[in-house]
Design a protein around this nucleic acid. Sequence first.
DNA 1: CGTTTTTTTGATAATAATCAAATTATGTGG
DNA 2: CCACATAATTTGATTATTATCAAAAAAACG
Lengths: 246, 246
Amino acid sequence: MAYTSFREDRAEQGRSSANSRSTTPGPRGDDAWESLRNAQGTRRQTYAAHDVIYFEGDEAKNLYEIVSGAAMLYKLLPDGRRQVVEVLGPGDLFGFDMDTYHDCSAETLVSTTALVFSRRDVEASTAAQSHLTRCAMQQVYAMHDHAVLLGRKSAYERVASFLMRFVPDRGTVHCQGPSDEDNDQGTVQLNMTRQEMADYLGLTIETVSRVISDMKRKGVIRLEKHDKVIINRICSLCQLTGAHAD
Amino acid sequence: MAYTSFREDRAEQGRSSANSRSTTPGPRGDDAWESLRNAQGTRRQTYAAHDVIYFEGDEAKNLYEIVSGAAMLYKLLPDGRRQVVEVLGPGDLFGFDMDTYHDCSAETLVSTTALVFSRRDVEASTAAQSHLTRCAMQQVYAMHDHAVLLGRKSAYERVASFLMRFVPDRGTVHCQGPSDEDNDQGTVQLNMTRQEMADYLGLTIETVSRVISDMKRKGVIRLEKHDKVIINRICSLCQLTGAHAD
DNA sequence: CGTTTTTTTGATAATAATCAAATTATGTGG
DNA sequence: CCACATAATTTGATTATTATCAAAAAAACG
């Protein structure tokens, strides 16, 4: 089993979890959102890897939805320190700081296709607001988890948490353990450089590298070409995230 | 001039900044929100200081709006490490993880009055969604800033940033400098214990205490009774936040 | 006024950053 | 396809920052 670090299924997941509480058959706001995708002002845009989509401080005119690929949002301190605040994949929305100016810069990690919505269209559609709200809430959730990682986890725990994030159906509250007890492997395609990982995890590039090397030495993971991580036992890696009691 | 650490004017600020982009005279969603405040299922609740409003994992039935006072949201790791992820004041909304369960615990910092909205009412009002969206976006903004603080700032910079956060109209992009060049003082009433500050800033209680003592020694601030900070020169403190080039 | 809690201070240890160099991967033109 | 140049990653030695452990001082409370 192999999967990329940016789940194709994340949009679907959000949708289904949102529905789980509702007794109505389909998502309410998503029909409106679907029609926005075909609106006049909506266009499809492709970017190369490491293209800047917008800079922090640019006027916020558009809202973006990733169709395929991956992007990151980051902020810079004047002395050059960088913090990557979000890593986004298909189905994720960004740029919806629609009031005035973008609070972050946005850059692709790999070659990416995105839908670009105009502010006018989104604001005009009250029905689409509920989809927007749900996405914003989802991001607040993700940021809460990330605050725990940045504020309270060790370097080892941060890297382990980062890798686990890209393993589907594992490490979450709903985790049912391995489907096959004897073969609990997984493959994660890292679409980020060590520097990008470091800036996301609040570490230096050297520390990230050292932790990965150490995990390799301990037999937790195996590498293929620096950017492909084979997890030997997912459960073992999960134990290293700090999210488990034992 | 004295002000509490939890601005009474924050709700107003959010509203006015939201309007600045619009040519319509009044906020659109806020009328709907105002009517929700008087809805059937809405009640007013008061809490003592350090009351738990809900626990992480509790079913999310309600949405809360702080009328007066202050609260924090936090997450715990199984070994007891705590991260305070948000500090909230009047006008702020929380608990809107309405899908399933609360992702954080919520606790008051001081005695607090809140409006409690029922999930049903909020979901029924599509117009109110835009207010909800705006609040969620505002929280995403705040979390981005906090990620920079947690991931990239030193202990000294974290404490300085924390104090500056409660100085109105200063330290933001819109800061116009001191109104009176010779008297750039300010007073911040800390409504948090050292432990709560430490858990918010990703530090230990000892480090927070040491930084504050050091700022005192250097003449940047002055203390009154541990929880009242007098900033001698706001600009000097601002220089210590890491957000300035020089 | 004594007790309890919170905060501060001190000494030491641990973790991760920094500085420096080696190694490995990637890309290019012949 | 290979040699070379360039960029990214890894590894090593050392330092800096913050955590931890321990105790004293100050504040809050009944």
